[in-house]
Amino acid sequence: MFNLLMFNADWPSGRVTIPMGRMFEYTDDHIAAQFRDGGALLLDSLISLPCLFCKEGREGETAYVGQINRARIVGRELSLEVSLDADVPPLQNSMIYANRMALDMPEDFEFSRNHWAVKDVDLYRFLLRNVRPRRQRPTVFQIPEHEIIEPALASAMMPFDAGFSAVYDAIQQAADNSGLRCRRADDIWENAAIIQDVVALIDRSRIVVCDCSGRNPNVFYEAGIAHTLGREVILITQSEHDIPFDLRHLRYIRYLNNAEGRGALTQALQARMLTLLGH
């Protein structure tokens, strides 16, 4: 069994208060009865179960696996002290929703209501079957133990040159039209080494656009990283001769760097992005 706590709470903070009136919703009666003694709540037995801490939603909301370390009844509320399992990567509600039958969460409305349920499912067995295993990590730069792709994030790998500013605008417009936000490494400054920012951005991205124009070696390196990490990569170029020989078997978008050409690039990128997103 496991506890499912679906509340819009700050789970990583470790301290959460929830209303007792939402206890045992979406819980089979015979299971709820195991954690009551008459009218008393058997908190010690209940908090011994592993927990899935979620926020409401069916998309990219972050969920965590962990446990309740302490629970106190304060009036009509429960004050909880929780900890997250460092060996289990953060999950996304989209993954949980896709596997809702295996987690005994058949009702859609369960993802739209704050509640505490108890499910007769082996949570860790489910995780072993459905969460990607740890990956071997490089030494030149760092990637997290478990990947966390942001479903609405796209990134652009291109030369840092003023001549490409309008091209980046065209890429951003295509992303925006597709329901994505687009960033490139010079939009952020999180690490001392720029390569770490670049890799972190690629690793989080749902789609990576690589502009091969001018045969920039950095872009080629970044395209290789994106392919290795399994990201959806869209190649664009101003000349087909700038596409590396090893990549010419892949589809790419050729564009002209003028107003009309960039407009056409936006349309072509938008169509490709929507296809990759399943729209």
Results as ranks from 00 to 15, higher is better:
residue 76 R to E: 14
residue 245 F to D: 00
residue 127 L to Q: 08
residue 279 H to P: 04
residue 25 E to T: 01
residue 34 Q to H: 04
residue 114 N to E: 08
residue 14 G to K: 03
residue 63 A to S: 06
residue 109 F to L: 06
residue 90 P to V: 04
residue 56 E to K: 14
residue 102 A to W: 13
residue 253 I to C: 04
residue 220 F to P: 03
residue 254 R to Q: 11
residue 152 A to S: 05
residue 139 T to D: 15
residue 165 S to M: 02
residue 203 D to P: 09
residue 30 H to Y: 03
residue 223 A to H: 15
residue 183 R to C: 00
residue 78 L to H: 08
residue 243 I to T: 00
residue 155 S to C: 04
residue 72 R to V: 10
residue 160 F to L: 12
residue 197 D to H: 02
residue 12 P to H: 14
residue 259 A to G: 01
residue 186 D to F: 04
residue 190 E to G: 01
residue 171 I to T: 13
residue 19 P to R: 12
residue 202 I to Y: 00
residue 175 A to F: 09
residue 46 L to E: 13
residue 241 H to Q: 13
residue 111 F to N: 08
residue 91 L to S: 00
residue 32 A to C: 01
residue 160 F to Q: 10
residue 274 L to C: 11
residue 245 F to I: 04
residue 155 S to L: 01
residue 109 F to P: 00
residue 5 L to S: 09
residue 94 S to Y: 06
residue 138 P to Q: 12
residue 26 Y to A: 00
residue 246 D to K: 01
residue 171 I to R: 11
residue 196 Q to K: 01
residue 37 D to N: 14
residue 136 Q to P: 01
residue 115 H to V: 03
residue 29 D to P: 07
residue 136 Q to D: 07
residue 75 G to E: 14
residue 39 G to V: 10
residue 106 P to A: 14
residue 66 G to Q: 07
residue 28 D to E: 06
residue 258 N to S: 04
residue 131 V to Y: 14
residue 117 A to S: 14
residue 157 M to G: 12
residue 3 N to G: 02
residue 191 N to D: 14
residue 243 I to D: 06
residue 258 N to D: 15
residue 13 S to P: 14
residue 20 M to H: 00
residue 223 A to Q: 13
residue 19 P to A: 00
residue 218 N to G: 15
residue 251 R to T: 07
residue 46 L to W: 06
residue 174 A to Y: 02
residue 166 A to V: 10
residue 161 D to L: 14
residue 240 E to N: 05
residue 272 R to V: 07
residue 255 Y to I: 03
residue 165 S to Q: 06
residue 175 A to V: 06
residue 173 Q to P: 07
residue 88 V to E: 03
residue 51 C to N: 03
residue 178 S to H: 05
residue 224 G to M: 05
residue 91 L to Y: 09
residue 176 D to S: 08
residue 152 A to N: 08
